[in-house]
């Protein structure tokens, strides 16, 4: 235990995700030994993020205005909508440079044990968007874990009556690996989602 301000800083840092008491202590002492101008810049950056950044009113992605840059981009297709769990998934998909449609960020996945049900996600907003916009295909790009799969299953069920093409991201073998090292669940998915080449 340290005195006043130092312990307060350690406690605050310890609330951050992935930061345990030891890491919090290490970061706190790093900040104490850092040049005051660097610390000021960090504080200003955090304040700016909290003041300027909000969630896009259309898709739920992070944005500095009312709409994010994807929703504002007129060159992107309105016909394909990619549904993801978090805003950071948008960045991951954008890195592929394969997708030129729009996004919809749910804000998480269905997790009954954590008390997160369909009503806690932006599913109603998604349905409203599908009613107003010219979407022809919805790509379900939730995480390939049990919560993500269950969320995709739920969405597929409620989107079915809308008559849209609903697709799910493929699961399978990672590029650059050896087949023999693949686990049976992933390999099974790869077989299930195999595609015709000739």
């Amino acid at each position: 235990m340290y005195d006043g301000a130092v312990q307060d800083l350690i406690d605050e840092l310890g609330h951050l995700p992935g930061i345990g008491p030891k890491s919090a202590q290490r970061i706190a002492f790093h900040l104490l030994s850092t040049d005051p101008s660097d610390v000021r810049r960090l504080v200003e950056t955090i304040q700016t993020v909290k003041e300027k950044v909000r969630f896009c009113e259309v898709c739920g992605n992070v944005a500095e205005g009312e709409r994010c840059r994807v929703c504002l981009d007129p060159r992107r297709s309105d016909e394909v909508l990619c549904v993801v769990e978090e805003a950071k998934d948008v960045v991951a998909i954008e890195r592929t440079r394969e997708f030129r449609g729009r996004y919809h960020v749910l804000g998480g996945a269905i997790d009954p044990m954590a008390g997160i049900g369909p009503d806690d996600l932006r599913i109603k907003d998604l349905i409203a968007r599908l009613g107003n916009e010219a979407v022809r295909e919805v790509i379900l790009a939730t995480d390939p874990n049990i919560e993500g799969e269950a969320t995709a299953t739920y969405l597929a069920r409620i989107l079915a009556p809308l008559g849209l093409r609903v697709t799910r991201l493929a699961s399978g073998l990672p590029v650059g690996g050896d087949l023999e090292y693949a686990d049976e669940v992933t390999l099974g998915r790869a077989f299930e989602g195999r595609r015709v080449v000739t």
């Binding site: 009954p112 049990i146 799969e149 269950a150 299953t153 739920y154 069920r157 049976e184 669940v185 099974g188």
Partner: peptide, 18 residues
Amino acid sequence: ETIQPFAKAIADDYGLFT
């Protein structure tokens, strides 16, 4: 090692998952 992979069959049906 997997003994019984119930996860896939259960996640494929929202009711079963809940």
